[in-house]
């Protein structure tokens, strides 16, 4: 099992690494990079929503927030990307705490609405604090990541180069993520999803566990935003649109809530599909909306959910009781 899993991982990463070589062209590379960037959004949402069971509707706003933080740090303070990215993660986690603190006292539907209210406030700040964010005009000239050591000078200015940068980052993130889910903390997330009251009765402190999950989710989402800002080299309040909320949720659900790889696959599908639909621009949102409805109604487990269930059926003879997607085998 262990060996086949490792082989699976290597195959997957290898295939991902081959994609930009197989499919050429700056535009295709652009789409490939966006797949991975949205992968971070989906991973973040999956952590708080798929694993910890908290429908944080406002979370996708952290994508834009991360982009803004990273863009501002590098434009206003002149920080290089390699400093801006980790700083963005820390600052996003802090924002996560500030927003999570009031929200996480609420449960279910109210938690969801409240995070959305905060997302909307972030949008208003980005659109109106002209002296800082330039409002709807957006921040122009976000620098490209660059390695400059003595005579060695390398810029990630093409989609091709950028793809491998983001791929490396997402592989590390997914790996850390799957490790985390096997720790007691990761199991506590799932326990809260399954039954918050029961979890607290066996000594798990739901508020702080949820807080950790929320802050982590904010951080992961913000990484995607940071990569986005330095890739598109531009940030505007547009990225706060509620459209991205729907898009990120559909990615997570289609891929499979509470699985590690599912959201990334969902992100790939729903970044590529709208581009394919671009030929029929007028009907793009209609198709995306219809898919969202169909997936939620008929396909709630998502791709990885189905795959996992089939695998579980095969090894039903083994001692493990059949569990829900993410609990047993996250991949």
């Amino acid at each position: 099992m262990k060996a086949s899993r490792a082989i699976g991982w290597i195959l997957l990463i290898g295939a991902a690494a081959l994609l930009p070589i197989l499919f050429k062209g700056a535009y295709v590379h652009h789409v490939l990079v966006m797949c991975l960037i949205f992968g971070f959004s989906a991973l973040g949402l999956n952590l708080i929503f798929g694993f910890a069971g908290q429908a944080a509707f406002g979370l996708p706003a952290f994508f834009a927030l991360g982009g803004y933080i990273s863009a501002l740090l590098s434009i206003r303070l002149g920080l290089p990307f390699w400093v801006a990215l980790p700083s963005t993660m820390v600052i996003a986690a802090m924002f996560g705490f500030l927003i999570g603190y009031p929200c996480l006292h609420l449960r279910g539907i109210y938690f969801g609405i409240t995070t959305m209210a905060f997302a909307q406030i972030l949008y208003y700040i980005a659109s109106n604090w002209i002296s800082l964010t330039r409002g709807p005009m957006g921040l122009v000239g976000v620098p490209v990541p660059r390695i400059h050591l003595g005579s060695f000078d390398y810029e990630f200015e093409t989609g091709f180069k950028y793809y491998y940068l983001v791929l490396a980052a997402i592989v590390v993130t997914v790996w850390l993520f799957s490790r985390l889910m096997k720790t007691p903390l990761g199991r506590a997330f799932v326990a809260i999803r399954e039954n918050e009251d029961l979890a607290s009765s066996i000594g798990i402190h739901p508020f702080w566990i949820k807080m950790i999950a929320f802050m982590l989710a904010c951080t992961i989402t913000a990484i995607g935003g940071s990569f986005y800002a330095h890739f598109s080299r531009f940030m505007s309040p547009n990225e706060f649109q509620w459209y991205y909320i729907g898009l990120t949720f559909i990615m997570v659900i289609t891929g499979g809530m509470g699985t590690v790889m599912g959201p990334v696959i969902g992100a790939v599908i729903f970044t590529v599909l709208p581009e394919v639909f671009r030929a029929i621009e007028q009907y793009r949102n209609i198709l995306t909306g219809t898919l969202l409805i169909l997936v939620v109604i008929f396909f709630p487990e998502g791709i990885m959910g189905l795959v996992n269930r089939r695998l579980e059926r095969k090894k039903a003879v083994s001692s493990q009781p059949p569990g829900r997607g993410g609990e047993v085998d996250p991949v």
Binding site: W242, Y243, I245, G246, F249, I250, I253, N285, I286, T288, G289, T290, L291, L292, I293, V296, I297
Partner: peptide, 9 residues
């Protein structure tokens, strides 16, 4: 989510 999709449509 479904009403979200409906609004897009």
């Amino acid at each position: 989510l479904t009403t979200f999709g409906l609004s897009m449509i």
